[in-house]
Design a protein around this nucleic acid. Structure first.
Lengths: 193, 193
DNA sequence: GTCTATATAGCGATAGAC
DNA sequence: GTCTATCGCTATATAGAC
């Protein structure tokens, strides 16, 4: 996959870097760094190095652009979950650890999707609900009961919410390092099966 | 205080219902029900029963309107925290219970503020951070350690995040009733001093 | 203190050349 | 497949009558 290659850089792959991917990446970056209000078609096109018309060839409308971003988000969530399931130390710990923003593709996609949802996109709300259900199904076998599933999901939601608030400028009030380790240990003790 | 009286209704109080309050309430309702994109000056003025010019007499700009909403949010957070501190059953339980959307003035103000923050308002981000710090200071004496404070705050953030996603149409995946009681008990067991 | 009318700017989207 | 030019709409904000 070549989804995260910076715009304009052509590498020795079977197909040239597609403008479509550049556009999605630029749109995501604008949503996270500048907010949904500034993530316009024109700004996205400029950041991706194409014209507005060029962008609209690949995504016929802003709704289609949103759908492209959200589809990619859901796909990343699925593959990310597969990788987590194989991680050592239990799924609960792995899940919470990846819930803190580390600029990974899935984190960025989720924050961008959250911004879209709060801005009023129904498609984004639906997509986030589906991802949350995916997580719940994966966590359920590793937790004590349904209340424990909710606890883990809510702590994860809280981490994402705080990460989505910070625009990258000031570090948020989210635990880091040893603090995060302690939090994970606390949640695991309360929720793990 | 007469902040939450429905627009246009004049009651037997010392001063007539002020347009300023009607405007703030209408703006808040639009932010929650229709999203930040539809919460425009014109829509807010119409919902408050005044003209756009009338609105701009009280709030000279959209930034000033945001500031009015956020100031009210912070004030409500302070008085709400005072009331919670007097509640029976411990502050942690009271805090989590009020974190689930019940259409109380403080809940509505916080959801509206969150929408503003995600839409890109730096003032909203700052105001929410201050409220969060207020909560942390109040919770600290009632919790085991700093990690426990973070756990309670993150669960609360998660509840708000999910409530802010739902536009009032479909109920969110947030625990209710007995489920909520079980969650509160679980968090209290893990966090309370 | 509230109104109408208008200025200005930026948005999403279309048309058509290349 | 990508560009330029432009349309139609809506947003914030101002000016000035009442």
């Amino acid at each position: 996959m070549f989804l995260y290659r910076p715009a304009g850089i052509v590498t020795a792959v079977s197909r040239p870097a597609r403008a479509r991917d550049s556009v999605l990446e630029a749109y995501e970056r604008l949503l996270i760094d500048e907010g949904p209000r500034h993530a316009t078609l024109e700004a996205t096109a400029a950041a991706a190095g194409v014209s507005k018309g060029g962008l609209l060839y690949h995504f016929a409308s802003k709704e289609a652009l949103d759908a492209g971003l959200l589809g990619r988000m859901e796909q990343l969530a699925r593959t990310d979950l597969d990788e987590m399931s194989a991680a050592p130390g239990g799924l609960v710990a792995a899940f919470l650890r990846t819930s803190v923003m580390d600029d990974s593709p899935i984190d960025r996609a989720l924050v961008a999707g959250s911004k879209l949802a709060q801005a009023g996109s129904h498609a984004a709300v639906d997509a986030l609900r589906r991802v949350r259900e995916l997580w719940a199904d994966a966590l359920r076998p590793h937790t004590r009961d349904e209340t424990a599933v909710q606890l883990v999901l809510l702590v994860s939601d809280g981490l994402y919410f705080n990460n989505a608030l910070g625009t990258g400028a000031v570090p948020g009030p989210v635990p880091e390092g040893a603090e995060m380790d302690a939090l994970i240990a606390l949640v695991e003790r309360a929720a793990s099966a």
